[in-house]
C-alpha cells in the first residue's frame, strides 16, 4: 500500500525532506521504520535512537507497535516542545 510519510524538526533535517509517498508492505509503524532504515544511511541514522522519536498515525500519537491498518499518513518527530 501507499502511505504518506512526514518528518519534522531534526528528523526532517537528517533525512533531508519533509514528506514523501512510500510504497510499503509494513504491518506496523515499527516495520515501516525498519524498511526506511534499510534504505539509506541517512534514514538509518535518523532512526538510530527510537527512544528519541515519536510517531503519529493519521495525526494521532501512537506507539511503534501500532498496526498501520488503513492509515493514509504517518509522521515521525522528536518529543514535542510547545508552550
Amino acid at each position: 500500500m501507499k502511505i504518506r510519510v512526514l518528518y519534522f524538526a531534526w528528523l526532517r533535517e537528517r533525512i533531508g525532506l519533509g514528506r514523501e509517498e512510500v510504497e510499503t508492505e509494513a504491518r506496523t509503524v515499527a516495520d515501516l521504520v525498519a524498511e526506511l532504515r534499510a534504505r539509506e544511511a541517512r534514514y538509518d541514522l535518523a532512526f538510530s535512537d527510537l527512544a528519541a522519536v515519536r510517531c503519529a498515525l493519521d495525526q494521532e500519537l501512537v506507539e511503534f507497535d501500532t498496526p498501520l491498518g488503513q492509515a493514509r499518513e504517518v509522521a515521525f518527530f522528536p518529543p514535542m516542545t510547545g508552550g
Partner: peptide, 10 residues
C-alpha cells in the same frame, strides 16, 4: 501543550 501539541522549537 508542552508535550502533547506538535510544536518544535529551534
Amino acid at each position: 501543550l508542552k508535550s502533547r501539541a506538535p510544536f518544535w522549537k529551534k
